[in-house]
Design a protein around this nucleic acid. Sequence first.
RNA 1: GGGCGAAUAGCUCAGCUGGUCUAGAGCGCCUGCCUUACACGCAGGAUGUCGGGGGUUCGAAUCCCUCUUCGCCCACCA
Length: 911
Amino acid sequence: MTEKIELAPQYDPTAIEAATYRRWLDAGVFTADAESPREPFVIVIPPPNVTDRLHMGHGLNNTVQDVLIRFERMRGREACWLPGTDHAGIATQNVVERMLVKAGLNRHDIGREAFVERVWEHVHTTGGTILEQLKAIGASCDWSRTRFTLDDSYSTAVRRVFVQLYDEGLIYRGHRVIHWCPRCLTSLSDEEAEFHETDGTLYYIKYRLVEPQGGSVAGVAEAAEAADDPDEAEYVTVATTRPETMFGDVAVIYHPDDERYDLAGREVEIPLSGIRIPVRTHVAVEQDFGTGMLKITPAHDANDFDTARDLDPDGAMPVIMTEQARMTEGGRVPPVLRGLDRFEARRRIVDMLRASGQLEKIAPHRHAVRHCYRCDTVIEPRLSDQWFVRMKPLAEPALAAYHEGRLRFVPDRWGAVYQRWLDEIRDWNISRQLWWGHRIPAWYCTDAACGHITVSETDMTACAKCGGAVRQDEDVLDTWFSSWLWPFATFGWPTETEDLARFYPGDTLVTGPDIIFFWVARMVMAGCHFMGDIPFDTVFLNGIVRDTQHQKMSKSRGNGIDPLDVVARFGADALRFTVIAGSAIGTDVILDPHDLETSFAAGRNFANKLWNVGRFILQNLADTPAPLDQLDPAQFELADRWILSQCQRTIAEVTEAIERYRLNEAAHRIYHFVWDDLADWYVEQVKPRLYGQVRGGDVARGLLAEVFGTALRLLHPIMPFVTEELWGHLPGTDGTLLAAAPWPERQPSLNDAEADDRFARVQELVGAVRAIRAEYGVAPGRAVRAYVQPASLDAAEACNAEQRTVERLAKIGTLTFGPAPEEPGAHAVLADGSALAVPLGDAIDLARECARLSAERDRIAGLLRGVAAKLANQQFVERAPAEVVDRERAKEQTWREQRDALTQKLHALGC
RNA sequence: GGGCGAAUAGCUCAGCUGGUCUAGAGCGCCUGCCUUACACGCAGGAUGUCGGGGGUUCGAAUCCCUCUUCGCCCACCA
């Protein structure tokens, strides 16, 4: 006994999504079993910032991961998609600091401990929101394994790594110029200081030559003689974009080969200050740029730092700016400029130089300026003490993995990006002057005489060397110093857990190309170094979500789309279908934030189409239909064989497309099968059988259930909600979940080229009649009579077998084989007003077939000529080396076979 | 300065190893339809010198060269 299935005529995602997700959770289908005998398939999520809210980029990235993980889960792998969040040092600290500012406070007012507590509070109340939002788009993460990069256990891993690298000599404390953000008040790594092309100004400043105090008198005299021009004798002109740093200059240099100058050993005076600095030569100068004369400011420019150290390893490196990038209150800065912001100071200095005649000229100058990747403030290079990781030794195994093909990128062009960065890798500044993060596990002895630094996994209370008092380093570690451990720290490392043994290494990493350096490359390095193996073998780079102006979507630009809005209006499946179908492999996804309807209607419509196909089928399956293997193939009609054949093709193509990461192709292929093949043709063809108008209803029902069930399974990774809901109504699924159902298997025996071909002719015939009906404006309710000339093509025979199909689908009253009546009214409404005679000889006639044959003939003839030409070219081969000859002989043989085959075909076509 | 990518219908894009590409899809547009699953639908239709110019080939949207226009990444000419 089967109750009539009642489904709404329109699919309402909001009515089922939450409940469906709950069913998945309750059944535990997302939870990976470390003891399962199945082969694991592991994806670790790129952990979003703990304070993030879901945006379209997450929507795309996580949908891609979910498609892969659901696909592999259905294919029988023990799928583990590990979710979690990142503490995101600077970003999160900034968020909480802004909240404090609103309350009229800054972090120093409340102190470090209270501040960190505030951040934890914030993270606990709002943190993890994004994980909840991921559920809304259907992400099938293993929530039992959710991790946070600041968990206690994670800290253990971070400390272990720090200590190990320190012991190996790969972490060291360095004194050098680093990228400093004067707003975030922390140092940054090279990757965090982004270049922006900027229209700047090049200032040409005159530095007055002065007599050296206690220098070589002879050298001065020669230099003075060498200069003919009195001005040149008096000044050297230095070109700089940053006049405000000049009080930090320690030298002015030119290239030793530069014949314009002969000033080495002389001294110049820094304008506005009277500070004397030497003129030196050094190869770091580019002679063609500016005047060929370069000022050296070691404390405020990384290159100058290197040059200065080269010139004088023990030389002074005066700092003339505060951490806030204001001119210092003392030291070399002239009193009128003290305390000024760097840009204000620049304006004042330029004015003063102009007034004193020391500004020779200014010129516009476009150059790349580094900005903080978190707050976009212009970076201020700054001399300071920081912790660094020596990267070169870590990079080597990561490069080897790529070169040996163990690690691959999809699309592969990103491999070159990865490789280049590793080839030219520089040491990584890992200390941040923040409060939110993993505090650096280093303790300094307070006894200056001892000065020992103790690096330890456990908290220290006494110096390891002298036993004296210690204080811990105030700084925290770069967020990425914890992220790079994600693929194994999340599974319990350094403890040798069952999870770690089972789920490391993982399989595929899905992320954006923008964090290849920040994260991907570093994870590979960490994996190789600490686990002895790469953390994943495939890196699948998804594109970036942009608006119609091709601008990256972001909240600050105001061009964002809130995925939850989309879910509410169109459903999660519509969102998922749109981003998957809308992006070819590795290309960006363009969506219009001002027209969600246009962007997402296709996905919503498709979900609805599927819903209604399902509704129709379910309403017509009285009882549990017979499974495919219990149906008698002898009773199959052409359409049955055809739909099974198409279904096979779809299984093969969808499977292959996902395996090749061509998810958009998988989406389009299943879309086409459901909408065009199944709904538009097969369901229509089958109706008379279902309605009992003709025999064969049971076969039709069995095949509908079979084919529709397959379609649901193929579509499930992309559109999990609607497919799961329909699956639940399908007879015979017995409460099983589609999410845990097996992926459809290919059955090559069901491929049926003959059926494909014959049904294509039926479709052509139907299309021809429909076109004629439309052309003649035949009212929908009115039948026409169609005549097919048997002489026209052998298709008539095929059509004969499918006469009923054609009659129904083309709404023909009768289909007759034979010439159309010669009567004058053949193209008009017949006398009884009921029918129109349509001679189909016009629609699919011999001419079309001939055209096709002739095109085919031309094509084959072309191929034949090509093969003949190749064969003709072979005469040169004889002189080649033996193995080349062998290879060429083999080719020649292939060509001969091709030639013979083509010739035969041509004969078959009557040539 | 170096590298990479893109330019195909009004819009957003597919088109993988040259030959069923006589170039497709979705949206939009035009015509007719509320045909007992679906108007978030059905049927039919219009629209492209595949950025320009050369070349290779029997054959090019596809391969090569070049130009133009966009976008991205990297980079110590201050």
